[in-house]
Design a binder for these strands. Structure first.
Lengths: 274, 274
DNA sequence: CGATGAATGGAATTTTTATTCCATTTTCAT
DNA sequence: ATGAAAATGGAATAAAAATTCCATTCATCG
């Protein structure tokens, strides 16, 4: 009376999982959640390991397998082991495969961007000036209000920072240019600004940063080179260089820097409060 | 008196195998032969299966494992399973250590995020379904208009896509929720939507995607697991899992996927025009 | 052509892992 | 609140797999 369907492929499996995982009791949903996020481990793990990962008892995991239509864990694992061969190759091989799938196929492109991202991250880690970064964190952690500005390619970074600050209850405004309002009046003396811009530098960002600097406020710049125009206004400059793919440039390194900055500021503030 | 070396990586393993397989007795050479040709099965097979495949007795296979320097088959298999599995398990621990050792300086944090970003990119490369990706590109390249929706943590991704499409002169609208206008009327039959959301999934995104789907329009989802609610509305789901640092999660992999998608769409459209 | 030591096959044993069962707790409708 | 049904945890049991052991075979050398 248990089985209705027994998924025979990954797609079927995922489909079924999505289909029924809503209507599951707590523990079983935990299993679904964990499995969805760690599908690749099923083939090489034991019930004990997986159930521990999901934070449930082995017996619960067992029931989960049965709910999906398998007779038990072994049968489910068997399905994954059979489809395992393709997933096996390691990162390098896999990247090769993606590349090989046709010069300008989406997957080949993805492989390029992944590689570029990894290189950018490496660069970032080795080129960042720890002293400058720490100084920026200190200045920002002490700020009564943080203003964030960044347009065009820098806007995703700005909005991500804004999101992170909101999550951590750190007062921050994102100057997003909506409605072409003049945002300058929101900037008070003592506030700190994070200005983000890359070549070709957007004038609005530079202007706003210059204005803030004119008030004597500190400005932290996230930009692409040390010779960026933000340098001229004496901003605390954090330089990130992204490796590009053809004419395109991703944001992996920049965003990693941004999130680190945000979390470090959050940590610092918490310390200060205690 | 058994062990001399115990290989700890695939390279070491292959090396050792080549090194000693010359001087092996018949049955053990059969094992070596078979293993060299079916390395990928080791992680997911039993001694019985492998020995049968090699045409020898389980006990012979056992001796083969020991000759290679392992205590037995289990130890050898463990090596293969670990090589395969993604490396995040000890992440929480590492962060603990970081905190404990007082090394939660901004640069240490940055190092963590960089590492997490690199792992996420690796995972992305090895988990993406090339077929699905291509399908998504095809659907989007043919769209008269692309609608992009993503809030909160997904918003940077959405805005980045919007920027990329603008650069490439691809008609696209970013539904940014400004002014709480009801954006549904902008969606026409035949348009395609890119919906981006991560747990905890934002209702607005799901609703809008469901609405578009209700019109019969295709929806491409960028989300975190295969069990995401977007799956339910039968969206073309591209799953990306980001490795997180403590409670925080960057966007390296997601953005790389997004930019690849955008550029691939641009390329495809250019082709079509010519 | 034997004697000796390495190699082998297969069964016995041990260990690990999956699965079931049931007492207890939680949830929910009444 | 109260009882019925569903869900859960944990231990008991069954099954499967790994490992060892030893009698037998095979190759080698005097």
């Amino acid at each position: 009376m248990t089985e209705q369907t027994a998924p025979v492929s990954l797609e079927e499996f995922n489909h079924r999982l999505a289909e029924i995982s809503e209507a599951m009791p707590k523990r079983l949903r935990q299993c679904a959640e964990f499995v969805a996020q760690n599908t690749d481990r099923i083939a090489v793990s034991t019930v004990a390991e997986l159930s521990a990962g999901a934070g449930v008892q082995p017996s619960a995991f067992m029931r989960f397998c049965q709910l999906l239509g398998f007779s038990g864990f072994s049968e489910m694992q068997k399905m994954f082991r059979e489809t395992y061969a393709q997933k096996w190759p390691d990162y390098a091989t896999r990247l090769e495969n993606l590349r090989a799938s046709g010069a300008d196929s989406p997957s080949a492109l993805l492989a390029e961007f992944v590689e570029a991202g990894r290189l950018s991250l490496e660069n970032l880690a080795s080129s960042i000036d720890a002293g400058l970064l720490e100084e920026a964190v200190n200045v920002l952690a002490a700020a009564p209000m943080i203003h964030i500005v960044g347009f065009r390619r820098a806007f995703p970074v700005a909005s991500y920072l804004s999101y992170a600050f909101e999550k951590m209850d750190i007062p921050a405004v994102l100057h997003d240019g909506v409605g072409k309002l003049n945002p300058r009046h929101a900037i008070r003396k003592g506030d700190v600004m994070i200005a983000i811009t890359f070549a070709p530098y957007s004038q609005e960002t530079i202007d706003l940063a210059a204005y803030a600097r004119g008030l004597g406020n500190p400005v932290v710049a996230i930009t692409d080179t040390m010779t960026s125009p933000l340098r001229r206004i004496d901003a605390l400059t954090l330089a990130v260089s992204e490796v590009d793919v053809g004419a395109f440039r991703a944001l992996s390194a920049t965003l990693s820097l941004a999130i680190s900055l945000a979390v470090a500021i959050g940590a610092k503030r918490d310390q200060a409060v205690q």
